[in-house]
Amino acid sequence: MDMTTVGDTGLLDTLQHEVAVFARRAEQTRLGGVGQVRNSMDRAAYLLLNRLDNEGPMGVKALAASMGIDSSTVTRQVAPLVDSGLVKRTSHPEDGRAVVLQLSPRGLSRLEEVRSSRRQLMAELTDDWAPEEREQFCTLLTRFNSALSARMSVQGVPSPEQPPTA
Rank of each mutant, 00 (worst) to 15 (best):
M1N: 13
M3H: 15
T4N: 04
G7S: 08
T9M: 02
G10Y: 05
L11S: 06
L12V: 07
L12T: 06
Q16I: 00
Q16R: 02
H17G: 05
V21M: 02
V21H: 07
F22P: 02
R25N: 14
A26H: 13
A26S: 12
E27P: 13
T29E: 11
L31E: 10
G33Q: 07
G33Y: 04
V34P: 09
G35C: 02
G35K: 05
G35H: 00
Q36V: 12
V37I: 13
N39T: 08
N39M: 03
D42I: 07
D42C: 07
D42G: 10
D42V: 05
A45M: 07
Y46G: 00
L47E: 15
L49D: 04
E55K: 15
G56H: 03
G56L: 04
P57K: 11
G59C: 01
A62M: 02
I69A: 03
D70F: 00
T73E: 08
Q77Y: 09
V78Q: 00
V78R: 01
A79Y: 07
P80W: 10
V82Y: 09
V82E: 11
D83N: 15
D83H: 14
D83W: 14
R89P: 04
T90R: 10
S91M: 04
P93K: 04
P93S: 08
D95K: 12
D95V: 06
D95R: 04
R97S: 13
R97H: 14
A98V: 09
V99S: 02
V100S: 06
V100M: 11
Q102W: 01
Q102A: 05
L103E: 04
L103A: 05
S104P: 06
P105R: 01
G107W: 02
L111Q: 01
E112T: 14
E112L: 09
E113V: 10
V114N: 09
V114L: 10
S116F: 14
Q120H: 02
A123R: 08
L125E: 11
L125N: 13
T126F: 13
D127C: 11
E132C: 01
E135M: 01
T139E: 10
L140W: 06
R143S: 15
N145F: 10
S146K: 15
A147M: 14
A150R: 15
A150F: 14
Q155V: 04
P158D: 09
P158C: 06
P158W: 06
S159Y: 15
P160R: 02
E161N: 11
P163I: 13
P163T: 14
P164F: 08
P164D: 15
P164I: 05
T165V: 13
A166G: 05
